[in-house]
């Protein structure tokens, strides 16, 4: 039996919205540790890893490890039927072929349940090692989303260059070029607006903007995004979900033509 209750049900909807454009079908892994998913996009260019710890739920029960294969698009459609302030409960039997989503309105006046059929999905699990990155930038997630969107009007790729003073995002295209530099600054009153650069050595890597724009769909999950880079390694774009876990995206840098 798997049962998980989340007062802020809307969190799961935001998570689905941040994954469904990249991944069609995937397995949610339920264990006593929590609720997790690892999946590559269909072209195997990027990897998503999301994790919600069991202690972040209001109630969490998982008697046996369970892998729930779902169409993310269909699960997102169901979660769209949940009210913004609804409490969400997920339930699945150990040997069952479906998962039930129950939505309770805050005043308990409306209770609905939606059942989603599960699918058998063959998924390849990759081991993600802990890495010390050359540079890690923490910045407002909305700022990162805006930069990726704005630069997409000019080019297809972005060069992200980190120095101790700031992080520069650059692109070029047929119509011209663009640069946006974000400088590190702290704000005691508004920590969500600060830019923190933790740099061991300068690093500059090029990435496909199309993927970064997909990652930025996670912006509603967190005020801040953490971008970690090392030479010739995939970038990690991580959104922390307060008191619960994170969603992290991995993307390999482009090699110069």
């Amino acid at each position: 039996m798997f049962e998980a209750r989340l007062t802020q049900g809307v969190l799961l909807r935001k998570l689905l919205d941040s994954m469904k454009d990249l991944v069609q079908d995937a397995n949610f892994d339920c264990s006593s540790t929590g609720f997790a998913l690892q999946a590559m996009d269909s072209s195997h260019v990027s990897l998503i890893h999301m994790q919600l710890r069991s202690d972040g739920f209001d109630h969490f029960r998982c008697d046996r490890n369970l892998s729930m294969g779902v169409s993310l698009n269909n699960m997102a459609k169901i979660l769209k039927c949940m009210g913004n302030d609804d409490v969400l409960t997920m339930k699945a039997e150990d040997q069952g072929d479906s998962v039930t989503f129950m939505f309770e309105s805050a005043n308990q006046e409306r209770i609905s349940d939606f059942e989603l059929k599960l699918m058998d999905i063959d998924s390849e699990q990759l081991g993600i090692p802990d890495t010390d990155y050359s540079a890690t930038v923490k910045m407002p997630s909305a700022e990162f989303a805006r930069i990726c969107k704005d630069l997409s009007t000019i080019g297809d790729t972005v060069l992200i260059a980190v120095t101790k003073d700031g992080v520069r995002f650059s692109t070029t295209g047929d119509i011209g070029s663009a640069n946006v530099t974000v400088r590190s600054h702290s704000n005691v009153d508004k920590p969500e607006e600060q830019v923190v650069i933790d740099m061991q050595e300068p690093v500059a890597l090029t990435f496909a903007l199309r993927y970064l724009n997909s990652f930025a769909k996670a912006t509603p999950l967190s005020n801040q995004v953490m971008i970690s880079m090392s030479k010739e390694l995939p970038v990690v774009v991580q959104y922390r979900i307060e008191d619960m876990g994170h969603i992290s995206y991995y993307l390999a840098p482009k090699i110069e033509d």
Binding site: M40, V45, E124, A208, Y250, L251, A252, I255
Partner: peptide
């Protein structure tokens, strides 16, 4: 995508 490496080559299979 030209010049784009896949992600699998960076991580070991579990």
């Amino acid at each position: 995508l030209p010049g784009q490496r896949g992600i699998k080559s960076f991580f070991a299979k579990k």
